[in-house]
Design a protein around this nucleic acid. Structure first.
Length: 460
RNA sequence: GGGCCGGUAGCUCAGCUGGUAGAGCAGGGGACUUUUAAUCCCAAGGUCGCAGGUUCGAACCCUGCCCGGCCCA
């Protein structure tokens, strides 16, 4: 009968820790302590009575020296999960190692690993079998940890600032809070359709009405659209809302939040993305939306004129039925890609911003900003409309956009308007695309490298 | 949706002008007490993405489809 594989391996140390213990040793020497390590065997070099293994855990890699006279036969294949105990040592050539006394097989590999030298490079396989990518490519492990630590840092900062983390519905009877088409599903027992949320915005602001004052949520949003290097149909978004604050307060906070995350995760406020060194240290460049378009000669309130100017520049405007879509196209085509260093664009046309309050001196311009890095929008923020009647009239304006052919225009939400009618404090709110931030922090140029299991077509 | 590129052993790849499929690593067997892409010997490993077509003969040429990448929309 085959021996039963151990169900646990307690009291293990991290490989990185043991490596550090090996550093001061002379070549060929070993410490008189005993350490226990567990992990995946990623290389094997047999030298007759002495077997060398490379053991990998989350923290790093170390060489195992296995003298057969002590350990017995080493019945270990590449990819097996083993636990060992032994003494920190250095090989004669100076390689940090563990001189193994005993080795136990914890899990036997059944399907051979990919080529341990070339790793797994096939892009499709890396996405479909991310576990192999993580196993074979140290870079993939590193990126996953950077993302995780970034989210942890953001939570720490918001918690420290007194924000409350909440969870709001993913399945919503109405969708809103962004311009996008939703996924639809069906609730059988109620025989009602539900939309997967495209944003958390309208529920979070209901909580501001309810007096929670400072709330945030980190979660998945879903938008029924194609995939690109910066778009993914399910993506992770942070949104926060802060009572008694406006968009200027929010600008200061987002600079602090991102710079601090970079500092904590990367050890510096800078990172390299698409060959550019990007520095998140505040203050970020700030520029009016209108001025940014003006720089490209693309600011006009006249839809026909704007259409003409875009066509002159060989832009296909056939799918832009409204001025809003045209100006958005102009912005995303000419302005956004040039915003490499962290930049805040502020004061947007009211047509693009159904939830933002007007500026004091111009009712056609609202207190909204978007912020960019690496040529990508990272997020969007407003001084929130907190008056029910004003919100209702913005929804009405959006219906006109929809009637003019913009399928992504806001659909309106009477229940949300009712919530506002009970009074909402003046409020600043913001969204942050976590996947895109992770792209910039890791230097990965595809959002699919920032997402552990990106969406792919189903196979066979 | 359109254009370009790709899919050959578990992985990384080669395969010329159409002539019966190759290597390295991994996996199996063996040798070796300081190797680290260890080395050496032996044996094994294939629906060439799928389906048609052309041809005496197709991984290779043609058509359609599937999956992926990049760019455009």
């Amino acid at each position: 009968m085959a021996p039963i594989a151990p169900k646990r391996f307690p009291d293990r140390d991290e490989i990185a820790t043991v490596r550090r213990e090996c550093e001061p040793l002379e070549n060929g020497a070993q410490a008189d302590t005993t350490r226990r390590l567990a992990g995946r065997v990623m290389a094997r070099r047999d030298m007759g009575k002495l077997v060398f293994l490379d053991l990998v855990d989350r923290s790093g890699r170390i060489q195992l020296l296995c003298p057969l006279e002590r350990t017995g036969e080493i019945d270990v294949h590449l990819g097996d999960v083993v636990g060992v105990s032994g003494a920190p040592a250095k090989s004669r050539r100076g390689e940090p190692s563990l001189m193994v006394d005993s080795l136990e097989l914890l899990s036997r590999i059944r399907t051979p690993l990919p080529d341990t030298f070339h790793g797994l490079t096939d892009v499709e396989l890396r996405y479909r079998k991310r576990y192999l990518d993580l196993l074979m490519n140290e870079e993939a492990r590193h990126d996953a940890l950077v993302r995780s630590r970034t989210v942890a840092s953001i939570r720490r900062t918001l918690d420290e600032w007194g924000f409350v983390e909440v969870e709001t519905p993913v399945l919503q009877p109405r969708y809103g809070g962004a311009f996008a088409e939703p996924f639809v599903t069906h609730w059988n027992s109620l025989d009602e359709d539900r939309y997967l949320r495209i944003a958390t915005e309208l529920y979070l602001k209901r909580l501001i009405v309810g007096g929670l004052e400072k709330v945030y949520e980190i979660g998945k949003d879903f938008r029924n659209e194609g995939v690109s290097f910066k778009h993914h149909p399910e993506f992770t978004m942070l949104e926060w809302y802060e009572a008694y604050a406006d968009y200027r307060d929010t600008m200061d906070r987002i600079e602090q939040l991102v710079a601090r995350a970079a500092q904590e995760v990367l050890g510096t406020t800078t990172c390299t993305f698409r060959g550019h060194e990007i520095d998140f240290a505040p203050p970020w460049r700030r520029m009016k939306f209108v001025d940014a378009l003006e720089e490209h000669g693309l600011w006009t309130r006249d839809a026909d004129e704007l259409r003409r100017r875009l066509q002159e520049r060989d832009v296909d405007v056939s799918k832009d039925p409204t001025w809003s879509k045209l100006i958005d196209h102009a912005h995303s085509h000419f302005v956004e890609p040039a915003l490499v260093q962290p930049t805040i664009l502020y004061d947007y046309p009211v047509e693009l911003s159904p939830f933002a309050r007007a500026t004091d001196d111009d009712p056609s311009i609202v207190e909204r900003f978007e912020y960019f890095a690496g040529g990508m929008e990272l997020g969007n923020a407003f001084t929130e409309i907190n008056d029910a009647e004003e919100q209702a009239s913005r929804f009405t304006s959006q219906e006109a956009e929809r009637a003019a052919g913009d399928v992504e225009a806001e659909g309106g939400d009477p229940d949300y308007v009712e919530a506002l009618s009970y009074g909402m404090p003046p409020t600043g709110g913001i969204g942050l695309g976590i996947d895109r931030l992770a792209m910039v922090f890791t230097g990965r140029e595809s959002i699919r490298d920032a997402i552990l299991f990106p969406a792919l077509r189903a196979t066979g």
